[in-house]
Structure formats: C-alpha cells, structure tokens
Design a protein around this nucleic acid. Structure first.
Lengths: 156, 156
DNA sequence: CCTGAAATTGCTACGGT
DNA sequence: ACCGTAGCAATTTCAGG
C-alpha cells in the first residue's frame, strides 16, 4: 500500500481482496469485507478511501443490461479515414451517436475502431449508413459478435 | 414499466431517469434520486428492485483504473482459427489469461476477437506469443489503441 | 403504483493503542 | 496502520390508500 515510482500504485494482499470484492459488487458492505479480510470495518474504510483518492478505484456504476431492453447485437467496426487528422471531427460526430459505446484511435489497418450496440441487423445497417456519410470516412469493416464468451475487468 | 412482448422490457420516463443516475454513480442515494424524479424514496426503491429482478439493471461494480496500476496499453486482437469448432477450447484457454478482458465469436475476418489490457508493448508481445502457441490458432492481427476517445454505456 | 413512518443496517468521524 | 464506539445517514420493511 505504498506509492510506487512509475510502475503504478502498489497493492498489498488486503487491498487486492478489497478491490476484488468491490469489482464484484460495488455495494458489498464494509462489515462483510472486514470479516472476509480479517481487519476492522474502520480499517477497511480507511483503505478504500486511500484507494479512491489515489484513483485506483473509480466511481462505481450500475450496469444496464442492453439485451434486456432489446439491444441484441454487439458489433465492432473498423473505420478508414481519408486523413488521420480528420479524427477529432469524426469523434465529435460519433459522440452524437448513442449506439457507439467505445471509440479508439488505433494502429493497424483502421484509423478508428468502434464498439456499437444495436437492436438488430437492420438497426446496425442504419448505423453503418450513418457512419459512411460522415465526412472523411472512406470505408468501414464490420465484425458482428455472435457470442461474447468473456467479459470482465482486469484481475489484479 | 410493463413487461414487453419480445422487444424487451419497457421503461417509462421515471425508470429512465433512475437508470441514468445509477449508471452515473451506483451509490446515488434513494433520497437524492427521489427528489430528482419527484416520487418517494420508497417508490424509487420498489422500482429499482423490479428493474434488478427483471435483469435490466445488473449488479453495480466498482472500476479498477488499470492505468493507475501500470496497465497502459489497450489492444484489440483478431484471432484466426484453423477450424471454428476449436472455439470452445480456445475460450477455455483464454479464460486463464487475465489480460484478456473480452472475447467474442464473430462474423467477418476473424473467428475470435479479443480485447486485452497490458502494461506495455513488451507485455503485449508476451501475450501475443502466448496466443500464438494455443492449439488451433493460425494467425493474429493486432490493433493498439493509441487513445480511447469514447467509453460509455448505452444511453437509453 | 404510490406514501409515511418505523426498524434495521451501514457509513463515517473521533479518540486512543 | 489499526481498533471500538457512538452518532448520523442510508436502506428496507410494513401497513395502508
């Protein structure tokens, strides 16, 4: 639980256990964590506060299960741009498209790489059409996820 | 707030507001939500419980900031398999690799598509070597994210 | 589906080892 | 760094419209 040089914050075994429990369920009570790691609730509280202040633990969020409200399709889309310097403008436009949940500027074949959620294949088509109309976009390549077999956070 | 036929659970305006607040911060208090949407804390509580039971809201989780503990690189890796039917075995092996945080079975060029987190490029190389040794894997293609410009949940 | 009030549980600050 | 206590805030249950 010391501050590290340049390789990042160092976590001891207790920190890791605490983090694992919170990554599983953000609402795990201090009492429950305390019992599990063998220190008092107060000590747990103090450690969590430190981890939050250091930015190691970020705000907890609730997850919306998109599938349950009719969004059945997950797709990744590689986007080719005429010029890489059009990236900022494209991102700006992409932020207006709710279905785009991730956007990356990448090395490799594509300039921009997206993750999108949509209701069905027709809906995906709409989005692809929308993307292809954006200024600077020359071509897109789509990978539809037929099954997500792993989805988790980094395990420390 | 009724149960829908096949297009998914239907959310009314109040449900949506509640969900938005919880997607922002899982620990927003019932009192605060109640004030914001104009119903009692009890009513908010009942709605959240229903949404949880229906699976629309999933367990809230705390986020580990991987970057803060030294994981600086995000990459996507497309994996080619000799035979698609090797997918289950490959997934099983991938689950043992902590750095793999997503795995999808996809249409398009790749059979399997991964998201991985690692410390640096050397670490990424290690992972790529590990992947290429897996039985059934013929080739991989990597996209390193130089910058993630969008990262959010679906907005309903 | 909503409300208000009561009971329970959990959080956080403080003083001390 | 840790603990115990105590006061306060939050969640959850209940009876009822």
């Amino acid at each position: 639980m010391k501050n590290a040089t340049n390789i990042g914050y160092l976590l001891d075994a207790i920190d890791k256990k605490i983090i694992h429990m919170l990554m599983d369920n953000a609402k795990t009570s201090l009492a429950h964590i305390a019992k599990n790691v063998g220190i008092s609730t107060t000590a747990v509280h103090q450690r969590i506060k430190k981890l939050e202040q250091a930015g190691v633990i970020e705000n907890s969020i609730s997850f919306l299960n998109a599938r349950k409200i009719g969004y059945k399709v997950v797709a990744y889309i590689g986007v080719f741009l005429e010029q890489p310097n059009q990236y900022p403008d494209v991102v700006k436009a992409l932020k207006e498209v709710n279905e785009v949940v991730e956007a990356h500027y990448t090395t490799g074949n594509y300039t921009v790489f997206l993750k999108v959620l949509c209701k069905d294949n027709d809906h995906l088509m709409e989005i692809l059409n929308k993307l292809q109309k954006l200024k600077g976009v020359t071509r897109t390549e789509t990978f539809i996820s037929l099954e997500q077999s792993i989805g988790r956070q980094l395990k420390v």
